[in-house]
Amino acid sequence: MARHFGDDWLIPALDPFNESWFTAGKITVQSCDDCGVFQHPPEDVCGSCQGTALSFVECSGEGTVESVAVVHHPVHPGLSDHCPYAIVVVSLDGAPGANAIGNILNRDPGDISIGQRVRAVFEPAKDAKTGADLLIPQWEVV
């Protein structure tokens, strides 16, 4: 499957914090082994109890649209052919408090609204420099 903004569009530089999110092929959220709080984006320290034992927990891959902004003005030349497009904030089932940013692949921007239920899909991408394979989480309205 081609990526939402084309296969040449920006990818994340993988690091220990985002590697699970962008490569696992499933929705994972960091959780504190001590107090159980979910935190996204991940950190080295739990923001609730300051514990340092943190793990990535697999979630169901479903969620809810919490906000949507439809972009009409491209701020990057690589997006000129893709406007208008919608950016959504999605709350993640099974990880209370954790929200992700994403796009919705199966609806026109004008047909996306707060409260819609969504399911994760994954866009394959490759980091040409490092050779790393990515599976970038995206969303479809259920």
């Binding site: 569009w9 920006l10 990818i11 994340p12 530089a13 993988l14 690091d15 985002n18 962008f22 984006p41 940013i101 980091d127 040409a128 420099k129 970038i136």
Partner: peptide, 12 residues
């Protein structure tokens, strides 16, 4: 081509 840190969560 590869967005770092905070931007890595948003730019893609």
């Amino acid at each position: 081509n590869a967005a770092q840190g905070d931007m890595g969560w948003k730019a893609p």
